[in-house]
Design a protein around this nucleic acid. Structure first.
Length: 487
RNA sequence: GGUAUCGUGGCCGAGCGGUUAGGCAGUGGUCUGCAACACCAUCUACAGCGGUUCGAAUCCGCUCGAUACCUCCA
């Protein structure tokens, strides 16, 4: 049995044994959403991935889990030249930027809650940490790794590269990066195309801006994570997570900023979840092929054959390892849904079966395999396959084909409860009451309509009157019948 | 072009040198008034070509193909 946790570190590109910096404590920072749109399936992947990490580490350590909300500084496009995403959305919808932020933060939280992701210990926002970001910029400037031009501050990557190695996370070399950048026609204020903004001067029409030593402006996107992770987790912390599309430039920039400001590496273990794909292509906002989580829960998207319960989404994601791509399809989701139901049904059966003197199983061994799977870089698909081994045991005992003794039965109950609910964070997939009620009511209204059409008003009235007694009002209108709860 | 990741049976998806992954679908059963659900059993693999090895899906090389990052994206 593998009883030591191994984590794949993007930086070393191999699995390493997890040893926290401070015994018994773990600091984990995960890049959260930029709140300018509805949460989509892509947001669910890192949230669930690191929810699992958080839940598993919590067994052994006291974990501080920090996940930011980006509500400023994230530019729309073109590196350092585009418009702030939140500002743009606010401008288009004629809202206060914080109204945009509030709206999408709430919908993000709701979706995460539906997916049964535990809330982070701290959920800091970029706009709440302008001062910390300014202080960090000052340090970077005084260390000589940044320069100011027209009220903007840029990190001098060429100079940084002389003292530290730039590109250590993504494997990029500075020369290659320089080659890959396109000619900016001398329009840029930057000394080199690889430099990036840590503070941007705000134009007059820009609606989100703060005073700084360099004038009115706003922080560069990469900076918030460096400043906030340092504030809540220290200059060096254990785990930094996020989607693998953030490896470069975002996380590379974080390393650069931390070294430039504090002369130390910020992160011990870098973890990156892979993307969800749709028809083999990355699902993403910029590609316009994303499906929102709301769409999944309601089935309201042309790609969706039906509505999917949040737990089906969660199980679907957990059936693939977090570092692999996961291709979306209806058949895969339906398969996940059925598999989940099977697992949950057997959990219910587990309560009903009884122990005997004879015993056919070694549950201790099964438990060990479950832990080994999790210790191997959080291999949830393997864990799930072991749980299905348990399903076979439960059904077999239930069918009186084999026996289990009391000791093993108690352990099996413990193992199932622990891994299914505490670690994988699954919940019973029974449809919400209201959903079911709605389906049932649709049928009743259909039957009543049939009665009305055959002038069987006795039946129709019986239905209406009996339902009213149960607190449901039927409303006949020109468009047909509907129902509502009587308040 | 540069940097990575990957190509597994009808579908999804594990595997990290030798033993059944698992789920879904299919097939055959059990259950049922008939079904559905549920349960049991079971078939189909390792992109191609070389090499290392007693032994390779697993290591190495080449070929073909796919994807991601190099502008913003989880």
């Amino acid at each position: 049995m593998n009883n030591k946790l191994q984590i794949y570190n993007t930086k070393s590109r191999k699995k390493e044994e997890f040893v926290p910096i401070n015994k018994d404590y773990v600091g984990m920072y995960v890049c959260g959403p930029t709140v300018y749109g509805d949460p989509h399936l892509g947001h669910a992947r890192p949230a669930i991935t690191f929810d699992i990490v958080y839940r598993y580490l919590n067994i052994k350590y006291k974990v501080r889990y920090v996940r930011n909300i980006t509500d400023a500084g994230h530019l729309e496009n073109d590196g350092d030249e585009g418009e702030d995403k939140i500002s743009k959305k606010a401008r288009l919808e004629q809202l206060e930027p914080m109204e945009v932020v509030q709206h999408y933060t709430i919908s993000y939280h709701k979706a995460m809650d539906d997916l049964n992701c535990l809330a982070p210990s701290i959920e800091p926002r970029a706009t709440g940490h302008i001062i910390e970001q300014i202080e960090m910029i000052k340090k970077i400037i005084s260390n000589g790794f940044a320069y100011e031009v027209n009220g903007s501050v840029y990190l001098d990557v060429n100079k940084y590269d002389k003292s530290y190695k730039y590109g250590s996370l993504s494997g990029r070399k500075l020369e290659d990066a320089l080659e890959g950048t396109r000619d900016l026609d001398g329009q840029s204020e930057k000394r080199s195309p690889v430099d990036f903004a840590i503070w941007k001067n705000a134009h007059k029409e820009h609606i989100m801006k703060w005073p700084s030593p360099w004038g009115l402006g706003f922080p560069g996107w990469h900076l918030e994570c460096s400043a906030m992770s340092e504030k809540y987790l220290g200059k060096t912390f254990d785990i930094h997570g996020g989607g693998n599309d953030l490896t470069f430039p975002h996380h590379e920039a974080e390393i650069t900023q931390s070294n430039a400001a504090n002369n130390c590496e910020p992160v011990k273990y870098w973890m990156h979840n892979n993307m969800i794909t749709i028809d083999g292509k990355k699902m993403g906002k910029s590609l316009g092929n994303f499906i929102t989580l709301g769409d999944f829960f309601l089935g309201s998207h042309e790609k969706l054959a039906q509505a999917y319960n949040p737990m089906t989404i969660r199980f679907f994601i957990l059936q693939a390892h977090y570092r692999g791509t996961l291709d979306f399809s209806n058949t895969a989701l339906i398969a996940a849904n059925k598999g989940l139901n099977k697992l949950m049904n057997s959990y219910e059966t587990l309560d009903k079966i009884s122990a005997s003197k004879k015993n056919s199983y070694n549950i201790k061994e099964l438990e060990g395999k479950c832990y080994s799977a999790m210790n191997d870089d959080f291999n949830t698909p393997i864990l799930i396959s072991h749980l299905f081994e348990g399903v076979k045991i439960i059904n077999s005992v239930n069918d009186e084909l084999t026996d289990i003794d009391n000791e093993n039965l108690i352990l099996l109950r413990k193992v199932f409860k622990f891994f299914i609910f505490d670690i994988l964070g699954l919940k019973s997939n029974k449809q919400s009451e209201l959903n079911t009620t709605d389906e049932v009511m649709k049928l009743i209204l259909k039957l009543r309509n049939k009665a009305k059409n055959t002038k069987d008003f006795e039946t129709a009235d019986l239905i209406r009157n009996e339902l009213k007694k149960s607190g449901i009002q039927i409303k006949d209108g020109r468009e047909g019948s509907s129902w509502e709860l009587i308040s």
